[in-house]
Design a protein around this nucleic acid. Structure first.
Lengths: 163, 163
DNA sequence: GAAATTCATGGGTGCGGACCTATTATTGGT
DNA sequence: ACCAATAATAGGTCCGCACCCATGAATTTC
């Protein structure tokens, strides 16, 4: 019977209001949760987020030169190499040298790759359903729309040299 | 026509619709952006997100035993040590042994620490203003409310053993 | 008083992400 | 034919985060 302030129910694990009052903080935390769960699901098939992003880019925009693909996704070309190594090993994409310019490598999604992407999208939607469980369908739509408006300008990186 | 899909204006850097259609993806990306910019701002004063979180917890809930603080924030106790090392060195918190139970260390925010927290909150709001620039004040409030509802259950980790 | 427990601490590990520098083909220009 | 620029590739580094174990001091339990 000490002056112990924590009887038994242990610590509440509640987050400081000072932080939850910040939208930036909430974004950071929920984003991390989303990323973590997403990554965990993708890991079930030995994929990471970049793999899915590359497959999505190929599916949405068609074949790319490898470098163009890297630029589109704002990933370092040398890192793209490794991502594509994995994807080719898994049979999700094919690398073919561009006959016109044999320096370039043309990256194309295979049918298996597109199927894998569809499967991953499905898993992502499952994760998403868990995360957004507290929200009604209408609210989820609202959230999505708002996030999209916040997100878009982030990628619309000012084209100028910037260097 | 030439099979060349990229005339000259370089690569658009646009994100695959397959991804932007996923709220989980948007959460992940915007969250990462928020985190990154936040961290960059905090780094100006040699602080990281954990430092701010600890200061906020102390300011909001008062002094904590070190272990209780770690539990509240769901951080490993051994990592908490290092965070507190930094904060004490910066004069933002004080560590005093609990006279009742001399194993425990009582962590208290100093006035300087509380001031530093206020400054960081200010910076966070600046970052936030940039991020949420595309949204009207009402929309920002809506976003905040929705995120809060999504976030809360994440921390309300089911108390059960789970192991 | 001895043993088991709790805390704080130090040190170390592994993972993922971002970034950076050669090196080797291949090209276009001169 | 030579030279400068571009593509892909293979390495390597650094950082942040999360996690885990061993130790020593202090406390509770028996």
């Amino acid at each position: 019977m000490a002056p112990d302030p924590t009887p038994a129910p242990a610590t509440p694990t509640s987050t400081p209001p000072t932080l939850t009052a910040l939208t930036a903080y909430l974004l950071s935390r929920t984003g991390k949760a989303a990323r973590g769960r997403l990554a965990a699901r993708l890991a079930e098939e030995d994929l990471r987020l970049w793999h899915m992003a590359v497959l999505a880019a190929l599916a949405d925009f068609g074949p790319h030169a490898q470098r163009a693909l890297a630029e589109r996704l704002s990933i370092d070309p040398s890192d793209m190499v490794k991502v594509l190594d994995d994807l080719t090993a898994a049979g999700h994409v094919t690398r073919t040298r561009d006959p016109a310019d044999r320096r370039r490598v043309r990256v194309t999604a295979t049918p298996a790759g597109r199927a894998a992407l569809a499967a991953q999208v499905g898993r992502a939607q499952e994760v998403q359903a868990e995360l957004l469980a507290p929200l009604s369908p209408a609210e989820r739509a609202t959230l999505h729309a708002l996030l999209l408006r916040v997100f878009t300008p982030l990628t619309a990186r000012q084209g100028p040299p910037l260097d």
